[in-house]
């Protein structure tokens, strides 16, 4: 049974991050996920300092606010003339450092340590349960299901709006789409996804799960909806294969899952038909052959 919960948690992380990550790739803001995955620590610590509780709700709220703050600060620095990557670098290191400082200063004896935040521990997920409506499930599963629901609802209602404001914001603005509101709503979802996922798998795997499957899907998709399906498929595949390989080799589960994301990306990058790397190499060699014979 414990194995089932770990697999379910991993798969839910794969599905939720895979779904959310698609628009990070398409909007070319993949690194904002890296920033948010670190700054949510700041949000969680501040939420703990204010409420003195580690309840999931306050953590989600604190993380959402920290994510929005990150997005907002990056936007401000950018409109002040800084490049996006520099703005992200400045904002996330500062907020993350503040988070670490606050933990050591005010939350030293609570179960909130930096290593846990970065690496997570998915193997402990089954023992931390919540009873809601008579169902007892791991806390991580509840939170991931909740955030997945939010993500799905957002896409059901605003699919064409987020697609257009991603593809052509200038045109979107001309037909009256609230592109800034779309941007912030989406970044809120990224923050919520991050915090729901990182309690079980850690901030580093969250970034891998948000970016890797979507980037792999981008290589082989002709439509946004196709990219979403592929991205979620790759996320789940990496989670499940990663779990069993970790078990086989008795190593870190989260680490193995992240490694599988990288492996899947490389496989698609190298062997994808028509414009994969090996395919191109093969065609180039064939071309050289014909040149020699002519």
């Amino acid at each position: 049974m414990n194995e089932f919960w770990v697999l379910l948690t991993g798969s839910l992380v794969g599905i939720t991050c895979g779904l959310t990550g698609v628009f990070l790739i398409l909007r070319k803001t993949a690194m904002i996920a890296d920033a948010i995955s670190h700054t949510v620590l700041f949000g969680i610590v501040v939420a703990f300092m204010i409420t003195q509780s580690l309840s999931g709700f306050w953590m989600l709220l604190g993380a959402a606010i920290a994510g929005l703050l990150t997005t907002f600060l990056v936007q401000v620095l950018q409109s002040g003339g800084l490049q996006e990557d520099a703005a992200i670098g400045v904002v996330f290191t500062s907020l993350f450092a503040l988070g670490v400082l606050f933990i050591t200063l005010f939350a030293g004896n609570v179960h909130l340590d930096v290593e846990h935040v970065l690496m997570g521990e998915i193997a402990f997920v089954p023992w931390d349960t919540w009873d809601i409506l008579g169902f007892s499930m791991p806390k991580a599963v509840w939170m991931l299901l909740f955030v997945l629901l939010l993500n799905v609802l957002f896409l059901v209602f605003f699919y064409k709006e987020i697609k257009l404001s991603t593809f052509d914001p200038v045109f979107a603005l001309s037909i009256g789409l609230p592109i800034l509101a779309m941007h912030y709503s989406y970044m809120t979802l990224v923050s919520l996804t991050t915090v729901a996922a990182f309690d079980s798998v850690g901030a580093v795997l969250v970034v891998a799960m948000l970016i890797g499957p979507a980037a792999t899907a981008y290589l082989m998709s002709k439509s946004v909806s196709g990219m979403i399906i592929w991205s979620m498929t790759f996320g789940v595949t990496a989670a499940i294969t990663g779990y069993y390989l970790a078990k086989l080799w008795n190593t870190s589960i989260a680490g193995m899952m992240a490694a599988m994301i990288g492996a899947l990306f490389m496989i698609v990058f190298l062997f994808k038909p028509h414009d994969g790397w090996t395919w191109k190499l093969f065609k180039r060699m064939k071309l050289k052959d014909t040149n020699v014979h002519v």
Partner: peptide, 9 residues
């Protein structure tokens, strides 16, 4: 003004 590699037809 747009990225023509966007996955759409």
């Amino acid at each position: 003004a747009v990225d023509w590699d966007f996955p759409t037809n």
